[in-house]
Design a binder for these strands. Structure first.
Length: 295
DNA sequence: ACACGTTGACGAATTGATCT
DNA sequence: AGATCAATTCGTCAACGTGT
């Protein structure tokens, strides 16, 4: 006994397109075939199933009972086809992706992004580097990195979002801060450092740099210890740190801060694995519940 | 006249049989 | 196993038929 014929996916896709679009000409536009090719494909499918699928009443195309029966199966087969391709897609990505992030991102959302990406794309090797925004952007521009998350201009970025800067202090911050205000800041170049110094100077608030260094962890440790306050984004709060609400900050004589832009840059000729990482990170940027991603 | 589907002619790509 | 060639498949284009 001969095997039953297999229904080709392209014929099923055309069949569904004719139903959904209400005609062969429109279906042809959708499936990228001429109208006559669509007509032939429908005819071929009808020959394979041994029944007419459409009733040709004048110019109206209506499904026959056989067409009605086939339609849900066709949709399920096409959906399964898509699912199979989607299931195989992660395994197909291979290669090395070089990612650069600023320290704040390394302290917060990076672990989650790396875990999520590694689970979905186990054959991709991720090389991650932490550095200042300007160096990261330069590296992407000169092919030293494939993807980077930096702060600053969103020009040319694959994705971006703006997040408010906040004053960070130790858990039990006193209602009256010391004068001059002790600050813990990263060494320049640092957008947060620049913003903090600018708003304090323009507001005429006396201040001194109590701690400065290249390590964000050390800056946060100094704040946690109550030695100083600093400026970052709210997602760094917790574990002994609080983000002061604008009212709380104003009550302590701290001036309002500007917002900061987080920008995702992807090398224009990056490979598919790097582009996929860029998509994952853009989703993190766009997610309303995701932690802020400071630079 | 126009829109839409069908049909026939033709060409390119693919498949399968055959040969070396 | 690889090369060759005829048969088959499937696409487009153009002409045609039909209904509005």
């Amino acid at each position: 006994m001969p095997d039953a014929p297999l229904l080709p996916s392209d014929l099923l896709r055309t069949f569904v397109a004719v139903v959904d679009d209400g005609g062969m000409s429109a279906a042809g536009l959708r499936v990228g075939r001429s109208q006559s090719a669509v007509s032939l494909q429908v005819k071929r499918l009808e020959e394979m199933v041994g029944a007419a699928l459409f009733r040709r009443d004048s110019r109206d195309l209506a499904l026959t009972p056989a067409g009605d029966t086939l339609l849900p199966y066709a949709r399920r087969l096409l959906a399964l086809n898509e699912q199979a391709l989607a299931a195989l897609a992660p395994a197909r990505l291979t290669g090395v992706v070089r990612l650069g992030v600023v320290q704040d991102f390394a302290e917060t959302a990076l672990a989650g992004v790396l875990a999520r990406f590694a689970e979905a794309h186990p054959n991709v090797v991720l090389e991650t580097r932490v550095g200042p925004s300007s160096a990261l952007r330069d590296a992407v521009a000169h092919a030293g990195l494939d993807v980077c998350l930096a702060i600053g201009s969103a020009e040319g970025a694959a994705a971006a979002r703006t997040v408010p800067m906040v004053w960070l202090a130790a858990d039990r911050v006193p209602s009256a801060l010391p004068v001059p205000l002790p600050l813990a800041l990263l060494d320049p170049p640092c957008s947060y450092r620049r913003a903090a110094l600018e708003v304090l100077e323009s507001a005429g608030v006396a201040h001194r740099i109590a701690y400065a260094g290249p390590s964000l962890s050390a800056v946060l440790a100094a704040v946690r210890a109550g030695l100083a306050v600093t400026v970052r984004t709210a997602d760094l709060a917790g574990r002994g740190l609080v983000a002061l609400a604008p009212g709380e900050a104003a009550a302590r004589g701290l001036p309002a801060l500007p917002a900061v832009t987080h920008a995702l840059h992807v090398r224009p000729d990056a490979g598919p694995a790097a582009r996929r990482l860029g998509t994952v990170m853009a989703e993190v940027l766009a997610a309303p519940t995701a932690p802020a991603i400071p630079g």
